[in-house]
Every structure is written in structure tokens, then in C-alpha cells.
Design a binder for these strands. Structure first.
Lengths: 201, 201
DNA sequence: ACTGTATTTGAGCGATCACTCAAGTTATAA
DNA sequence: TTATAACTTGAGTGATCGCTCAAATACAGT
């Protein structure tokens, strides 16, 4: 008997993620979300419950996409450190192309980082969620590096958790820097300098 | 004949900076500012004109403090690269102590970075201001490095602008990473790993 | 003490905020 | 075809937003 949904939940969340990613949580009004999702407030609240719940769903979707992209690049390189270098180069490219369609990044900076810096004590749900996602990435990268170490790619005494966090901080720094009004080449050169600086052990 | 001001402008701006730094631009309401400044809306608007103007004044004050702190650390070390390493260590320390008084940092992350990521097309004044401040820091650091290079501390072929941006990105990465819920030691180790990674040329 | 002026006050402005819900709509099962 | 349940609508909720301004206040010069 039930009626099927008019809106595909995945598409809805993806569109919300795009707007939240571009403008941040507080600067996104429900009016703007209604327009972006082509849904009226009643539908939005029936489907997601609150603006914060919708944001969390959007952030999770963003994370999934990010994680998948990173995993793909790492998997396509023999050595993990080569994969990380390639990933940093890819981020530099993505950060320096202007957003031409709705699939591309609306801004250079990472939505997770933007959320990390925008969350306050008034939005504990956002803090918890974003911290959990950063933990996941750190653990995932640590495990990947440990596998590489056990296979002899890295020296046996390398602290993979520290190395993972060093790379994570490079990614944060690169994409945040790219949010500045700078030429594309500056971002590209920064990525190369970061890659050059990272330990090759 | 005129009446003198009851509020010291510098103190007022410093208090506003503290609140804006902690909560960001959009999450700060005028009600909260009224409490923090102990001023009523009429006084605030007579003195600063708008919330955005007050924020820009606060951001400028933050920058001045930041610039002064960095300059002091750099000046107290013979070699510039040693000074930058010391500055990174100082940031790690500051980022990992809980804010006990109103002088201390309310959050680990940099207010300029938070502003850079929070600004949108709706707040062009913030984008312009924060980009100008990042440019100033980059130029200042570039000049400092060039002086060091000309004095033989760095190799003659070093691109000081690139090196300055690499260090700026490290600072961004460190303080943004420190906003995560992580142990103090993790931030300290990250700073050490960054210092280790930076070119010694 | 008195006057003049810069500063401060706080009630209140229209606009917008996130959100609700009764009514309408539509796809599916009987 | 009809009944039913899920979905969607959109006017409207009280609260809060950034901000204004006429009146009150307090200091400096006479």
C-alpha cells in the first residue's frame, strides 16, 4: 500500500553535502537547502529530522566519497608512499580547478576540516561525528602503512601512526592553503614540496 | 566638552576577538557579544558600525598578536630555521593547554584559518581581509628567509617564497590537526615530525 | 554649578531562523 | 476501482537574528 519516495535519498544527501561543503553548517539556511534539494521543509524534516541530522548524513556521504577516492589512488600504486604522493598531487589538481559542475568540489578546502573548525560546544553532534571520521582515516592509513612496513617497504622501526598523522596534517595543510586566493601553480608547487619533505623511509 | 569613552577600544576588540576566535563569525550572536563586551547594541554599533566591521577589527588584532609572537620567536634564534622550529613547538604547546584564562587561546585552531574556511561569497569583506593577512605573513616570512639566504644560512638557489609557503602550510596543518580530540603528546610528536621533515638547506 | 556634546542605554524594529502540522497527493495492494 | 498508508506540501509557529534611534547619562570646558 505504501507510496514510494519521490526523492532518491542518495541524490538528496549528495546535493545537501554540496551546499554544506561550500557554505558550512551555519551559513546554510533551510531556505537554501529547500532550493538545492527541491524539497519543502515538511519533506526534509520527515526524511532527516533536523538540519543537524541532515548535515551529519551529508558529512558521512562526503567521507565515504573521500575515503573511496583515497583508497583507489593508494591501491593503484605499488608503494604506499608513492600512492600518498599521487593523492596529494590529485588534491592539488582538484583544488585548483574552478567548480564547473555539481560533481566537482565547490571549494578547495576539505568539508571535514571546515566542520572541525566550525563546530562548537553548541553542536556536540558535529564535533563527535567529525572526530570519529578523522579517527577512521587515521586508523585506516596507519593500518595501510603497517602492512607496507611488514612487507619491507618501510623500515621496521617506523612509527606508522605518527607517519599517518604527519600525512594527514599535510593533506589538511595543502587543502586549507589552497583556499587562499593563490595561483594554481602555487598549490601545485606546495604539493611537490610537501612530497619532497615527507620521509622516504 | 566631549565625554570620554567608558570602554577602552583595545580591550573591547580583544574581548571580541576571543569570542569570535572561539565560536567563529556566524556562531557569534550579538547577544553573546553584548555580554562579552559588557556593551549594549547601541554602543557597539556606534563604535564599530556592524558585526562584520567588529569582526574585521578583531581579526586584525588577532593578526597583530600572532605576528608579534612569531617575530619574537624568530628574533630570539640565530638561524631562521631554528626559529621556525621553535615557533612550531610553541604552537604545539599552546594548542595543547586548556584555556584557563582569557588571555590564552580559546581553541587550538588559528582564527585566521577558521575565518578563511568560514568566509563565503556573502561575506566578501572577510575573504578580502583574511587573504590580505595571509599574504602579509607569507611576504614577511619570505623576506626573512631571503635575508637568511643572503647571509649564507640557506643555499643560494633556495626559493624562499616556496619555503615560506611550505612552512605556512605546516603551521596551518599543525594547528588544525590539534583541533581534533587527540592527546597532547600526539600534537607534540606531530610538531617534531614536521620539523624533522622540513628541509635543512 | 551650568552648559554642551559625545557616549550609552534598551526597548523594539523588520527580517529571517529552524521547524511544525493539518491537509493534500500519489503510488501500491486488495 | 477503491482503500490505505506513505510522502509531500506550504502557510505559519515562536524565537532569534542583526540592527536602529530617541532618550538618558556622564564627562569636559566655562
Amino acid at each position: 500500500m505504501p507510496r514510494s519516495t519521490r526523492h532518491d535519498p542518495e541524490t538528496t544527501v549528495r546535493r545537501a553535502a554540496h551546499l554544506f561543503w561550500e557554505r558550512g553548517y551555519h551559513a546554510c539556511s533551510l531556505k537554501q537547502l529547500e532550493t538545492a534539494l527541491d524539497m519543502r521543509p515538511g519533506s526534509i524534516y520527515a526524511a532527516f529530522g533536523s538540519k543537524e541530522s541532515l548535515f551529519r548524513a551529508a558529512l558521512m556521504a562526503y567521507y565515504e566519497q573521500l575515503h573511496q577516492g583515497m583508497t583507489q589512488v593508494l591501491a593503484s600504486h605499488e608503494r604506499v608512499l608513492d600512492g600518498l604522493a599521487a593523492y596529494l598531487r590529485q588534491l592539488a589538481v582538484e583544488a585548483t580547478m574552478q567548480p564547473d559542475n555539481e560533481e566537482a568540489a565547490p571549494v578547495p578546502a576539505c568539508m571535514m576540516v571546515k566542520t572541525l573548525l566550525e563546530a562548537t560546544v553548541d553542536t556536540p553532534g558535529l564535533e563527535d561525528t567529525v572526530n570519529d571520521l578523522f579517527d577512521r582515516i587515521e586508523r585506516d592509513l596507519t593500518t595501510t602503512l603497517e602492512t607496507a612496513r611488514d612487507q619491507g617497504e618501510l623500515a621496521a622501526d617506523v612509527d606508522c601512526a605518527r607517519l599517518a598523522r604527519l600525512w594527514q596534517a599535510q593533506i589538511m595543510g595543502l587543502r586549507t592553503f589552497a583556499q587562499r586566493r593563490v595561483d594554481a601553480e602555487v598549490v601545485t608547487l606546495l604539493a611537490e614540496d610537501m612530497i619532497q619533505a615527507m620521509p622516504v623511509t
